[in-house]
Design a protein around this nucleic acid. Structure first.
Lengths: 194, 194
DNA sequence: ACCTGAACACCGTTCAAGT
DNA sequence: ACCTGAACACCGTTCAAGT
């Protein structure tokens, strides 16, 4: 049995496919070719495999994008860290979101396109996980969800807006993106009543 | 010359193509088949023409989407109406945006995907047109642009979020989309300093 | 000036067949 | 269990040729 395992290991020097390797490769292709270049055939090629092989591991391309978006949000969420109160947390989360979107090529577009899972249990679980730090800081579950939805919407909308490229051609002269984002986010969070 | 014109008119009972007819047909196809179904061949078929014919009137598909988005924003802008002060105007604009996005199938996704024109003169012109009502209500040009960018970002992000479909599967039980949007928008506008 | 026919280089996805 | 080969039904776009 041990030799069996060993045999399999040496017989496959290029390790087998799995979801994680698939997602890492997808991020690599995303960085190299952008979201429009992220298609099944190049992704398969990156993994040394044919395109249909991918469908053994994921249902369809939409699932791939969903999994990638989950990575982005997990990263943004992790970067927030400890905060003194819920307003500080929301501010940190908003800034972290914008930074994280920008840290991937086409990051905002990716997350705007990605669909949420249609599994209800999965979704409710994530909703609670997401709201948890705010609840710990004294907000009710429903206000936590509501405020967080607003901050995510603002950050995602802003990042889509900003990623538009040609916006910078003129807006850079007329106002600062950094400053305006900060102003908007601060206004939003300050405006939430206690 | 008159008979010449008349001859052309009778020779072409199905009127010639132009940008406006193209855009109307595009909205028709959008409503019928959704954004994923809005492709060049069905659009051409709707107009009784072959797909390459469209390229005589528009540069590429991106231009089509840009023109469609312009229609959406013009409508949202027109629906705001007269307002007493700039805060009321921004509130009205935010609500109007959400309504307008929702009034077209895949409206938010369409506007999120559509690129801004890369013509600088065109963009500066629109920036000033857009900021005008706020400037008339006492805001400086730069603050008007900044605040409007925030409101658009929030509304677009929210609409993308909300259009996600599967979000409703759980969020409908845990919070009201209408209420939360209203809360967020009000917070944002209230938070802007005078 | 405006449109067609045919083609190019792609897509996502399915499915029998291989190992 | 996991992957290949071949195919299907599409894409957006170009371009010579027609009228």
């Amino acid at each position: 049995m041990v030799s069996n395992i060993h045999a399999r290991a040496t017989a496959r020097p290029r390790q087998q496919l799995d979801k994680d390797r698939l997602i890492s490769a997808a991020f690599l292709v995303l960085e190299r070719d952008g979201l429009d270049g992220l298609s099944m055939r190049p992704l398969a090629a990156e993994l040394g495999v044919q395109a249909p092989a991918l469908y053994w591991h994921i249902g369809d391309k939409a699932e791939l994008l969903r999994l990638m978006a989950r990575v982005v949000y997990a990263q943004a969420r992790a970067e927030v860290g400890e905060q003194a109160d819920w307003r500080a947390w929301l501010l940190g989360f908003g800034r972290s979101l914008r930074r994280t979107y920008a840290s991937y090529r086409d990051g905002a577009r990716l997350c705007a396109i990605a669909k949420a899972p249609d599994d209800k249990a999965d979704i409710t679980y994530h909703a609670q996980r997401i709201a948890a730090p705010l609840v710990a800081l004294g907000l009710s579950q429903s206000r936590a969800l509501s405020f967080e939805a607003s901050v995510i919407s603002f950050a995602l909308g802003w990042a889509s807006f900003e990623a538009n490229g040609s916006m910078h051609l003129y807006l850079d002269e007329m106002l600062s993106f950094d400053e305006s984002f900060e102003t908007g986010l601060a206004a939003l969070v300050r405006g939430f009543s206690d």
